[in-house]
Computed example of a mutant assay.
Amino acid sequence: MKTATALLSLGLLAACSSPTDEQAAAQTTATDPAAPASPAATAAKSASANGVVEAVDTAAETITIAHGPVPELEWPAMTMTFQASDVDLTAIRQGDRVSFEFTSSGMDGTITAIARQ
């Protein structure tokens, strides 16, 4: 009987001290960069940048741009591929200097406007 009471007490104590799902997710995200971010952290943000076109794939509706830093998003200069399904890429060529506006969700970007410089 004492063993059953002790086990029940330990089980209740463990249940009361377990983090909530929200706390566990926050702890996992803080310690595991591959863990999914919270909805607020992945909300789409708008930004603009300048860069040089590395590749254009009109069939896949993507464009790869080596762009400068993006202070609004605290991004360093880098080369990345953006989705571009809502813009006309037919006049954009590899090597073109461009200015562009985009939305980002995490490290995924979608071009909303682009112009050759």
Rank of each mutant, 00 (worst) to 15 (best):
D96Y: 01
F102K: 00
H67W: 00
E61N: 07
Q27V: 11
S17G: 11
P71C: 09
L8T: 13
K2M: 10
S104L: 00
S17R: 10
R97P: 03
D21E: 12
D57T: 06
E74S: 15
A66D: 09
R93Y: 04
M1C: 11
A15C: 13
T28A: 14
A4V: 08
T58L: 04
S85V: 03
D88W: 03
A37C: 08
M78Q: 10
T28H: 14
S105I: 07
Q94W: 02
A26K: 15
E54P: 02
A84D: 01
W75D: 08
T110C: 01
G106H: 06
N50S: 13
A24I: 07
L12I: 08
K45Y: 05
L13R: 12
S48I: 02
T81S: 04
S46T: 13
A14P: 13
A113I: 03
T58E: 08
F100H: 04
M1S: 15
A14K: 13
T31A: 15
I63Y: 00
S99Q: 09
A49Y: 02
A77C: 10
T62H: 00
S48E: 11
A30T: 09
T42Y: 03
T29Y: 12
S9K: 11
L73G: 11
H67S: 03
M78G: 12
K2R: 14
A47K: 03
A35E: 12
R93M: 05
V87Q: 03
R116C: 04
S9I: 10
A40C: 12
S9T: 12
